[in-house]
Nucleic acid binder design. Structure first.
Lengths: 179, 179, 179, 179
DNA sequence: CCATAAGCGAGACGGTACGTCACGTCTTTGG
DNA sequence: CCAAAGACGTGACGTACCGTCTCGCTTATGG
């Protein structure tokens, strides 16, 4: 429950920070994004940033989660192969070409050696959720965790390992998944 | 060509650094490993560390690459399903349970936002190479890049995304891969 | 001119602030007394503190001035040496052992580098006034400023310079003053 | 014992800091002197300032102690009244008109509420020492502490309490001291 | 009796200095 | 020429307090 007393949180400041972190990620890269830099870019005091977020990972997550979910939502058409293909295409595009995707890759990277970031991501499994949503209406397979790892894995590995998305064929991957 | 004059590089210092980085990775985690800390732990001057390596990623890569290759080498038995299962089991163990695996996950994470680390990893694709070696003698599939992504991907995603190795069944994954 | 309309100033808040600053001075020392700390200790909003006082020096002065005057008032007995001795004893005790004295020393210290505090103290010369009062009825000396400096000075210096009150002998000082 | 290895301390940095603190004291006043400001003014890193001094009080003390001692040294002439008068004149001038004197007043002020500053000053009692030196050759009085307090006190109080040096007559004070 | 006015608490805001840490470089002694 | 030691400038860290600002609520006075 939010307090009713005291000066209310500035929506302007909140948005400025989220936009700033997004801009900075693109301009200077994740490693060079700093809390100080975010504050200055947003025209907000450092204290205000710390008041609402503990780490740059938290800000980045809040800034990209909504985009990510939207990007990975695929409307059902009844055509299973088509839906999976569309989903994989969206996934490839998200991870390889969007700001939110770059943020997401950076966060997963940080999570490998920062438990707090790992916990942050564990709270909302955007990739897994999107895959499970698509799979729930596409297959009789009831172990959705397992199935989602098999669906996402090849794309995820190809992009995260640095070989890039160019040789990925979503339709072929979808076909093999259903085989 | 290496210079013949002057004091030769100290082999003692080199090994001390590599051991130090390995120890520190276990003790304090990747994020808390610093060049300063490595130098102090190794009993070596900071300048000496910088003389031979640019970043902690380089040291870590050098320190863990050999371990990684050994860990992922699977002797051929002629049994395709068995070999793939053994390989996936080794891969799961490597990524989830070994020091070298933790280092490798950290490096892949860094590579998402640090081009120098990305290039470092691109120079020696340990995961892909190991998979291709196993696949070359196991399947008629000639697109080994594609096949390796499909083989490694599910395991890689499951572990990197934080859901852990516990629910992974290497034999089931190998069977589905061959289907 | 004070306004007649609106909510009147809270006497409760005023007293709470003065008590808080007194308590804090004893507990954490002058340097660690902050406007924020005073407000919290008094159970009063920071705004309210700022509404009535500009600095912690002002609050401290208001909180200790009355105590100081009382502490340094010496009733005349007709015995000049006795009165001066009594006064010097009171002065030693005030500066070295009382809360108000500690506050006063702190304020004089601040006044050395803060013109506003200097002006605050200039408005009411508590030490000088008390000495002049005693001297006016004790000596034919008509330059009371001069005489008060000679009377107070040795005690003041001994305590302010950190050597402490232990070796001060008020009667001996009084005798020498009258010589 | 100082280490012989490693880069030696920069004399240039040391002097720049001492000059900076002196300049700043005059320009902005003690309260507004900050470690950050000193570093910037000296063209030196903050880290370097902290490496050699803990507080601005320490820097100020080091910067002004030598000046202070020089300022308060009075050559003996054999004329007791004359020497004391000269000394008191020098004391008045030091406390009221010199940079080092302003620094010294500020430090004594801080010492009233900062135990570390108090200890710093206790280590070298510049005022007391100078008075004792003059008194040792001027009077048969063997309690030099006591005598120095009586000598310095009136001047010290007059200046510290804010009434200023204008009405002080060193010869008259010396005469009364000897009476 | 209700409108106006000021005081009150709470708490967010933009600032600025704090003292610490690691960075990568530079400068010395000594092998 | 290399190694060690360690000081250097740089710049981000997270915290504290500064003094100001909005809020909604509480008292008072006076039409």
């Amino acid at each position: 429950m939010e307090s009713k007393v005291g000066r209310p949180r500035s929506e302007r400041a909140r948005e400025a920070v989220l936009h700033a972190v997004d801009d900075l990620l693109v301009e200077v890269g994740y490693a060079a994004v700093t809390m100080k830099g975010i504050a200055e870019r947003a025209g907000v005091s450092r204290q205000t940033v710390y008041r609402w977020w503990s780490t740059k990972a938290e800000i980045l997550f809040e800034a990209s989660a909504a985009d990510a979910e939207e990007e990975l939502a695929v409307p059902p058409t009844g055509d299973t192969l088509g839906d999976l293909t569309t989903y994989l295409q969206a996934l490839i595009n998200f991870l390889a070409n969007t700001h939110a995707g770059a943020a997401y890759r950076a966060l997963i990277g940080e999570a490998q050696h920062d438990p707090e970031v790992a916990q942050l991501l564990a709270g909302k499994d955007i990739l897994g959720d999107s895959a499970r949503t698509v799979l729930a209406r596409a297959t009789p397979d009831h172990d959705l965790d397992d199935a989602s790892a098999r669906l996402i894995g090849p794309v995820f590995f190809a992009i995260m390992s640095g070989r890039g998305p160019s040789r990925l064929d979503p339709q072929e991957l979808a076909r093999r998944f259903l085989a």
